[in-house]
Design a protein around this nucleic acid. Structure first.
Lengths: 220, 220
DNA sequence: GTCTGAGGTGAACGAGGCCTGAACAGCGCA
DNA sequence: TGCGCTGTTCAGGCCTCGTTCACCTCAGAC
């Protein structure tokens, strides 16, 4: 099983990452400053480092440079705020493999983590299918009962989450954190709205409502 | 699977090469000075050597001469900066098979790598086709729905990238790194502009926009 | 030197996606 | 049956993202 080192000082984002990655079967270790990140990253215990660029004590960029200087080839995924997006170039120069700007959707992070771990673990299939729904992850094409459907970004993200957990009941909160990110207002009715639009595009019978619990993708 | 030895001391270019070649299914080994290049190149483990001319410890030219003196017939692709373009003649004399001047476009590098590996692995077809588009890689002729179209260099590079990954959604960054190179400003709107001009020449329906994600070449 | 065309930049414009708030519908419980 | 709670749907505004255009630089041809 792949092990992931998370270097992130914002407790909110960190807990979001730890829980989400654990739920997908990865072991995580969480550190909160650049010094620890460098120490742990220098061991051979991890298959991936998720590195916040704005860490205390020592910045993510410094950590990355130090690791690369020591010859560590560990894949590194950089997290950066909008405002510091220009730092990304330096990080890629310094040998980062990929980056994401905050706020990010969890599904997107998962996709990138999977891509980076492809050599280590099982690789990501090209097509996801559940019940009448097929998602082509390369082309982002969606079909229902063989019929092509065009979805917007959010609609696609939400459907992808449902398909990945097909048959399971997912709460509004779970769907929000996967398809939107950690940065959501709990009182929003966004999920309801997007389920509604998805139903219009996919047909009424594809997504089931479990009153009081959440939604579920029909697998039959 | 073909194995490629990369001898390049600029970490930026090296990481660009390693990632890009790996993504195309080649195994790479990366060394950063002329001494290592010579040691690794002397083994029989590689099908191609990508050799920077300005390496520390021992220059690319020295490495090349040493390998050839020892009777190694390994194909060698030279990388050279603009300023040192005159060294190319010496390298070709010393037995290099091909060369590129920095900065270079990734697609161009790929084409040369494919050409050099032709004997070893699968060989490159002469014509690429996807949907209504046909590219003749030898003559650089382009047709859409059978109609001839003339493209500038960049337009061609961008279209080639789209055709090589036809149907897949490619992000702006992926397109930039393939059609422009490692040396791009992530905030540029170049891709947008060139997609726009390509659409004018090829027709509106050939390249599809996936809002928030990138572009895709229609395969139907 | 002048001209031409390719490559690249910055900004204005516009469409469309995303989200909110509120009205409406329907289910379950008393 | 009536009430409250949960879920659905719709209209409308904001704002991001993509498109396009005018303009600049640069290199090569003549």
């Amino acid at each position: 099983m792949a092990r992931i080192l998370i270097a992130e000082d914002d407790p909110r984002i960190a807990s979001f990452l730890v829980k989400g990655l654990a739920a997908n079967g990865w072991q995580t270790v969480h550190v909160t400053d650049g010094e620890q990140a460098e120490q742990y990253g220098a061991t051979d215990d991890f298959n991936l480092l998720i590195l916040d660029i704005g860490l205390p004590v020592r910045s993510g960029l410094e950590v990355l440079r130090a690791l690369r200087t020591r010859g560590r080839r560990l894949p590194v995924l950089i997290l950066t705020g909008r405002a510091r997006a220009h730092d990304v170039v330096d990080c890629l120069d310094a040998g980062a493999d990929d980056y994401m700007t905050k706020p990010f959707r969890f599904e997107e992070l998962l996709a990138r983590v999977r891509a980076r771990l492809r050599d280590v673990g099982s690789d990501e299939p090209r097509v996801l299918a559940a019940g009448p729904v097929r998602l082509d992850l390369w082309t982002r094409q969606v079909t229902v009962h063989g019929r092509d459907v065009t979805l917007t970004g959010r609609e696609y993200a939400l459907l992808e989450t449902l398909v990945r957990h097909a048959g399971r009941v997912l709460s509004r909160e779970q769907l929000l954190s996967h398809a939107w990110g950690y940065d959501f207002d709990p009182s929003t009715n966004l999920v309801n709205v997007y389920v509604s639009t998805l139903r219009k595009k996919l047909g009424e019978d594809v997504i089931e409502t479990l009153r009081g619990f959440g939604y579920r993708l029909r697998t039959t």
